[in-house]
Design a protein around this nucleic acid. Structure first.
Lengths: 110, 110
DNA sequence: TTGACGTGATACCAAAAGGTACCTTAAATA
DNA sequence: TATTTAAGGTACCTTTTGGTATCACGTCAA
């Protein structure tokens, strides 16, 4: 399966994965650090991270023996693209969001 | 399972269901009419409709022996609520969307 | 270099998801 | 009323998913 939209929606469909995303939105974490916050094994957390990575929602950087997991906000792009289809139901107000999302380098103010 | 956010994300996690939502955004349909547009049985389509209904994304009206399936745009509310958490990554521009979504009676212009 | 630690990979299991087949029920109509 | 047709319900099958257990590998530090 390689459709980015499907991969992103799938990644968001699990509550643990949504929690991980929230945690990573505050601070980058290693797998072990994330595991501390859940009642499951490291292997299970790592599987979720793989799904999130496949969905483009996080990036992983190997650093020594650790793996630093970071949120990739742009990964939500396909989700917003899809949702944007429903513009008409909200009077095109959703278009504003779409434009905002697509602005380059979301995190810095340009 | 009864968490509205989870039910909505789950409903969106399948490509067939997202297609159904798009179709219903153009026009209301019976189960049989929807089945015509997919390569699967009516029972399978009906299962997807049940998931969409559980997720609050569609409404179903019994009309004689038929069931009229309609899009319920407000059902996307919990999804936007969740996504809104990431405001800061887009400079609070996502807040505008949130406000738009939460305006009463989205479909009529008030 | 030895050991502890963080991770990757694999095998395995249970439950959920997506699908079909079949039967029943309800409504429109001849 | 009898027939046809659309829909619901249930049982069942297969694949995927979420989880554990276990072992191997690379890296850091004593």
């Amino acid at each position: 399966m390689s459709d980015p939209t499907q991969l992103a929606f799938r990644a968001l469909s699990d509550p643990t994965r949504r929690d991980i995303i929230r945690i990573l939105s505050a601070e980058e974490k290693t797998i072990a650090q994330l595991t501390d916050q859940f009642d499951m094994t490291r292997a299970a957390v790592k599987k979720h991270l793989t799904v999130l990575s496949d969905g483009g929602l996080i990036t992983v950087e190997a650093k020594g023996r650790e793996r630093i997991n970071r949120l990739n906000p742009q990964g939500l792009g396909p989700v917003f693209d899809w949702l944007q289809y429903f513009d008409r139901f909200w009077d095109d107000r959703l278009s504003d969001l779409k434009a905002a999302i697509e602005a380059p380098n979301p995190k810095d103010n340009q």
